[in-house]
């Protein structure tokens, strides 16, 4: 057990957990931020994607011991006073089916659009390829990322 300080969705938090605890389980079990999902635990499915200093990471594969003082954003903190354009686009196109993977999809998309605000279709497909959707809502995810880019420009 050790004590860690980090900033989650703009708030400072202090947690006491084993140093090998992945960020995913800190968020879910300690901070009750359950929007970040568990899917595979080995960084293959993208359901657990969050932002570390604005960049998408797989929270299942990052131990808390490497995150002291870092700044984490989860799906619960993606919107500011209004929805993030990615969330708007997801809603407008009615993307989700079961909805389980969508937080991870939106966190990947929002980080990607920050780096590449004017993506073409191939860029979108490459960027989103790491996120699995078992319901296969891929067509709508693809369209929603393009729509979000339009909304942000």
């Amino acid at each position: 057990m050790a004590s860690y300080n980090l900033k989650v969705n703009g708030k400072s938090v202090n947690i006491n957990v084993d140093d090998d605890t992945p960020l995913l389980w800190v968020l879910r079990d300690e901070l009750n931020l359950v929007g970040t999902k568990y899917g595979c635990g080995i960084g293959q499915c993208g359901a657990c994607t969050v932002h570390l200093d604005g960049v998408a990471i797989r929270s299942c594969s990052v131990p808390i011991s490497s995150l002291e003082g870092s700044n984490i954003t989860t799906i619960e903190g993606l919107a500011s006073d209004k929805l993030h354009p990615v969330q708007d686009a997801w809603k407008e196109l009615d993307v989700p089916q079961c909805g389980y993977c969508q937080a991870g999809q939106m966190m990947t998309a929002s980080s990607f659009l920050k780096q590449n605000p004017n993506p073409n279709n191939d860029d979108i497909r490459n960027a989103m390829n790491g996120n699995l959707c078992r319901c296969a809502s891929y067509n709508r995810i693809e369209k929603a990322v393009a729509l979000a880019a339009k909304k942000m420009s």
């Binding site: 359950v34 568990y38 929805l83 809603k91 937080a103």
Partner: peptide, 17 residues
């Protein structure tokens, strides 16, 4: 639109897990 859309896009607790 899916009636749970607002909860899904904001990461609200919905699922068994």
């Amino acid at each position: 639109t899916n009636v749970d859309i607002d909860k899904i896009i904001s990461g609200a607790p919905l699922f068994g897990l």
